[in-house]
Design a protein around this nucleic acid. Sequence first.
DNA 1: CGCCGCTTTTACAAGCTCTTTACAGGTCCG
DNA 2: CGGACCTGTAAAGAGCTTGTAAAAGCGGCG
Lengths: 122, 122
Amino acid sequence: MDHPQCYRDTHLLVDFERRSATLDTQPMALTRKEYDLLALLVTYAGVIVPRAELLMRVWGYGAGIRTRTLDVHIRHLRCKLGVYADSYIETVFGVGHRFQPYGSSRRLQSSAMEPPALALGV
Amino acid sequence: MDHPQCYRDTHLLVDFERRSATLDTQPMALTRKEYDLLALLVTYAGVIVPRAELLMRVWGYGAGIRTRTLDVHIRHLRCKLGVYADSYIETVFGVGHRFQPYGSSRRLQSSAMEPPALALGV
DNA sequence: CGCCGCTTTTACAAGCTCTTTACAGGTCCG
DNA sequence: CGGACCTGTAAAGAGCTTGTAAAAGCGGCG
């Protein structure tokens, strides 16, 4: 009971109960893995989720497994997020991915050597 | 008596008392199993009923039984629903089926199947 | 028994999801 | 700049799920 039942921002609604997501009132047609991935990212909204963490929690892959599946799924998710793709899902080179709630997108760009925000298990 | 006596929308009427259904004023000629299946789906209108749930409640099959009977009956039902077949009965890949009250089906074409929205016992 | 309607099985076609593969493009760092 | 990684992308393939048609099982009834 310590988990919220859904995530919501200006455009996106993720219902953890029903395992469904809605984008601008249009239901997103997500596959299981796509939903799992989105749900995990959204759960840590604003936080970088390391690649290994994603592979662990969505695929059950342990460390040291090399696969492109994650990237492919990220791509599919981005496609289905339409015009919001890049503002929602951010890639942090060499670390992982971060879901940014709508409107909170700070220009990332490589130059940022500042304390690079939050990250899981770091 | 927390169960309504019948289901009704623009085109379909299901009478749980008489175990009968009417489509656009034409009585549907349903067999027992067909009625059972339709009644169960209609009872959970708008909600995905998992395959296992259907097999359990209509056929009494426990988990792990592999059969195509359900699919065949779904097909027969669809046939008898005529032109409304696909707007009424929706298949959610790998999950189950969902009855959509008339008019509540948003059909998005192209890339994907139906949105995995509500589901029973998930 | 023989017919008939309902149900289930069978066999194959079609569809969907996930993963892998191969290569292109980016990023970091000396 | 150049090499070593890392990520983006498209396409192909494997594995499983569902659609469909036809045949086989089953039970009631004249």
